[in-house]
């Protein structure tokens, strides 16, 4: 007999992990192509608000998912335009993308604050009261399964296909990739927008499933944890998924600590994921001796005639 609290913890872990993982995977793809996009938080927010508004107005969840993905992807194209086409600083552009995304989504979502969604993404399999881990997994909604598929596909494409190797070649060494005739601008632009689309999906998951309402700043730093996850996962999809589960577990565990007999202020519990993220990053960087496995030419704008 597995106790019900434990199952609740597993369920919450999976959900928190799904949210973080999809965004992290998108960022991983962009970074593999050499584009650092610090705008993840803003892109998730745009995806979350646009998906939520569509859901409220149409009650069509499929359409909402699509709108969330597309709008976040379009939003990320600002970063692609400024950094890939106009070759401006990726750090600055990404930071501003976050600030713009947060304020823009607050503006758009103002009228919808506090409204509750009538529909919510249901589990793929109809399981009333899950009683074991398998049933918990089966009871997850469609985006959870999409995340798993995306993980497998991304890992396969990056490692095993010419297309993926070419993306990686660009992020590793711009000049060599250029001499191979690879289309650097186009690839980076697309990879950035794909990263945005993934962040949008993560945002939709946030408002359609994880916490089915909209409020300002509800992304609460998850975009930044996703960025940390990419480093944690060493730019590898499966390891990033493992990291997402770990961080998801911590996020899920916090509010439940009391039920396991730990007395802790709920305010302190809330900050533990951030503290742990920093500590994990530090430990990881020490273990790997500063070499985290980042693509070597990440963050460098490509201009062919640079001497």
């Amino acid at each position: 007999m597995i106790d019900i609290q434990f199952l609740g913890l597993v369920n919450a872990t999976l959900q928190a992990a799904t949210l973080l993982f999809i965004a992290a995977l998108g960022e991983l793809i962009a970074e593999k192509s050499g584009v650092l996009n610090l705008g993840v938080e803003g892109m998730i927010s745009i995806g979350a608000v646009s998906g939520f508004i569509t859901a409220i107005n149409t009650e069509n969840l499929f359409l909402s998912i699509i709108v969330g993905i597309v709008s976040a992807s379009l939003f990320s194209s600002i970063h692609a335009f400024v950094t890939v086409i106009l070759k401006q600083d990726q750090t600055v552009s990404g930071l501003i993308l976050t600030i713009l995304g947060l304020s823009l989504s607050s503006l758009i979502g103002k009228k919808y604050v506090g409204k509750k969604l009538n529909t919510k993404l249901e589990g793929v399999f109809d399981i009333e009261n899950p009683s074991n881990i398998l049933e918990i997994i089966l009871a997850q909604n469609i985006i959870f399964y999409i995340a798993i598929i995306l993980m497998i596909v991304t890992a396969f494409v990056l490692k095993r296909t010419m297309f993926g190797r070419r993306i990686e070649a660009i992020g590793e060494d711009l000049k060599s990739a250029d001499s191979m005739g690879l289309k650097i601008g186009k690839t980076q632009f697309i990879a950035t927008c794909v990263g945005g689309a993934f962040a949008g999906l993560s945002g939709v998951y946030l408002t359609l499933s994880y916490v089915p309402y909209w409020t300002d700043g509800m992304t609460s730093g998850r975009g930044w944890i996703a960025l940390a996850l990419v480093i944690f996962g060493g730019w590898k999809p499966y390891r990033t998924a493992f990291g997402a589960l770990l961080f998801g577990f911590l996020e899920a565990l916090g509010p439940r600590l009391q039920t396991y007999g730990f007395e802790m202020s709920p305010y302190i519990v809330k900050i533990t994921p951030y503290v742990i993220t920093i500590l994990v990053l530090i430990v990881l960087t020490i273990l790997k001796n500063g070499n985290t496995g980042a693509p070597k030419n990440i963050g460098i704008p490509f201009f062919r005639e640079n001497r």
């Binding site: 730093g221 930044w224 960025l227 940390a228 480093i231 951030y274 993220t277 920093i278 990053l281 530090i282």
Partner: peptide, 8 residues
């Protein structure tokens, strides 16, 4: 990332 997370 570390300075940003410190904010939270």
């Amino acid at each position: 990332i570390t300075t940003l997370l410190t904010n939270y």
